[in-house]
Design a protein around this nucleic acid. Structure first.
Lengths: 341, 341
DNA sequence: CTGAAAGCGCTTACAG
DNA sequence: CTGAAAGCGCTTACAG
């Protein structure tokens, strides 16, 4: 065992394995990469040497020779607090991890600021450190992602805001239809003055959900004037609810574009002494764990977040392997009725 | 601009920059790496060529030549739900990110299972893909980390459970003293029957906090029999509270080893119609955002999570640059009094 | 089926 | 201060 200056073992190389197995480096490489043109007994001998030496291929060397990093980036243009605060992301990450499980790719998480990724992140993503990227929670106003998309294969979680993107691979739900369904549920249950708390206007999903609410309202002959924006955080849900109540004390329902904002809205409602759903019915969106962790289980529009994550991974893998693939995957939503409406 | 088969631009190399600037590759390399032995006008010319071509060094090539990856791993042996569910981790991550900001290192997050990291994670960490690692939330019963620690520099968030580790670099608080302080606060405020909800018995911090509670109780002449274990999740806090109430319906206070578990305990208490702090006083640990997001602001033992994260980053950076460094950093806790006790 | 050799894009002694 | 050359640890045509 060779020790380097700091007393740590020097990693064995292909060369060492070749010597131990009495074959050439080429052959070892073939075995490591599962080439079929190697004699079975040689495969056995090489594998024995690999186990013996505890050989792990050097990724840098491999990726230099290969021009492949076997890494993909998960880019989330949100600050840490929002990323960690919303269980929706946890489910997306789980799905992606699961979708990548059987592949040789590793996932590298890059948190970027919502406005614009740091110089460091940009260099990382553009500097050939990953073979592809999954971008979740895309906001408008930054064309870095257009550049990224022109550089490596990218799959978006949620239809990206920029329609002029070079390519356009995404996994999404029909946000407008889902929101309309949630709103219709309130209408069907006799609510009249139905407000909405929308997500930020620079995110496509937020726009679509607001639009779905407005459409359902208009079709039912109700006014679609009661809209306030949040930013998908708990606190912003409460703030928007307060603003809504100030504008229309007699509202009797609210469709909220995310469960987390809905939880914030409910806590404000209760602070004001309003009963949920007695006085005000609340319908959320996501069906994340935030829907069931509050005092009042949330009636909400379910989107299959975990499967969406897995699907993003699969789509990117297909793109990377050059397979012809579906480029736009829209998954179904459904109503989940609990206690808040 | 060269286009490859898929229509993506081929990245410019050192070679190309050298040609554009009319110098050798060696010189370009020196400029890129900030060597001082280059003539100023040459530096200018090279930088112009770099900007012109939009050159970004190939990390794989660099790290092969260098034997440095300029990447460090953040390893969290927890499942996704727990990692995302506890705001404590968000703060640690923020701190680490901040501590790494001015360095050239990128952070790669590796979620591992609490029992034992996957084959994939092991190969990643041991395969020379990162120069060092920060391990947060270490559990006993897995000696992979001993191997990791023998292979690359590692800093632990929280004193690791295994005392026989090769090296032992960590950032922590004095958990026992903090817990004793929280418990003493309850004693000083006249509580008699004080229970505790501990963290998992395979984590050093959990053990130390339970010990701190027990010590304070014994010193006050109170029995230290009312202990139930949780696993640092909200749900486990509620379950432990239920068990405690079953054992001792007349308990009047509980010291809980994390804010998230405390929030779970409080919700159970309220379900049972018990007033907090009227009937039962609750003291938490962490002072994470979970302390202030519930209905009842939590009185808790504050630990400087963000600074601890930053400190872990700094310590690892020092280790990587070979600087002699403090290897054990214990940061202060303090009482934060709010409404729950 | 197997090996020798070139090449991936950098860095870094070594000369000059 | 600068360049030619070797080397980092792999992969992959090319011969055989």
């Amino acid at each position: 065992m060779t020790l380097d200056l700091t007393g740590r073992r020097a990693a064995p190389t292909l060369e060492a394995v070749a010597a131990a197995a009495g074959v050439s480096r080429s052959t070892v490489s073939r075995v490591v990469n599962g080439s079929s043109h190697v004699r079975p007994d040689v495969v056995t001998a090489v594998n024995a040497a690999i186990d013996e030496l505890n050989y792990i291929p050097n990724r840098a060397a491999r990726s230099l020779a290969n021009r492949q990093t076997m890494a993909i980036a998960l880019v989330v243009p949100e600050d840490t607090n929002r990323f960690f605060g919303d269980p929706f992301f946890a489910e997306i990450v789980q799905g992606i991890t699961q979708g990548l499980e059987d592949s040789d790719y590793v996932l590298n998480l890059q948190l970027a600021s919502p406005s614009s990724p740091s110089e460091k992140t940009i260099r990382y993503l553009l500097g050939g450190n990953v073979d592809g990227a999954i971008v979740v929670s895309h906001h408008s106003g930054d064309d870095f992602f257009t550049t990224l998309d022109a550089t490596i294969p990218v799959v978006f979680g949620g239809r990206p805001y920029h329609p002029e993107l070079h390519r356009n691979n995404y996994v999404d739900v029909d946000n407008a239809a889902g929101a309309a369904m949630g709103t219709q549920y309130l209408i069907d249950h006799g609510r009249r003055r139905i407000a909405t708390i929308a997500g930020p206007a620079n995110m496509q999903a937020a726009i679509d959900r607001a639009e779905g609410w407005a459409t359902a309202m208009r079709e039912a002959g109700h006014p679609d004037d009661l809209l306030e924006y949040g930013d998908f955080t708990l606190a912003s849900g409460a703030a928007a609810m307060r603003a809504l109540l100030d504008r229309e004390p007699k509202l009797d329902a609210v469709f909220v574009a995310s469960d987390l904002m809905a939880a914030g809205a409910i806590s404000l409602l209760r602070d004001r002494g309003l009963a949920v759903p007695g006085d005000v019915a609340v319908v959320g969106f996501d069906d994340s764990s935030a829907a069931t962790s509050g005092e009042i289980p949330l009636t909400t529009v379910h989107q299959p977040s975990r499967e969406m994550g897995a699907e993003m991974a699969r789509m990117l893998l297909a793109l990377l392997s050059g397979e012809a693939t579906e480029r736009e995957r829209v998954m179904p939503t459904r109503m989940v009725v609990r206690a808040s409406a």
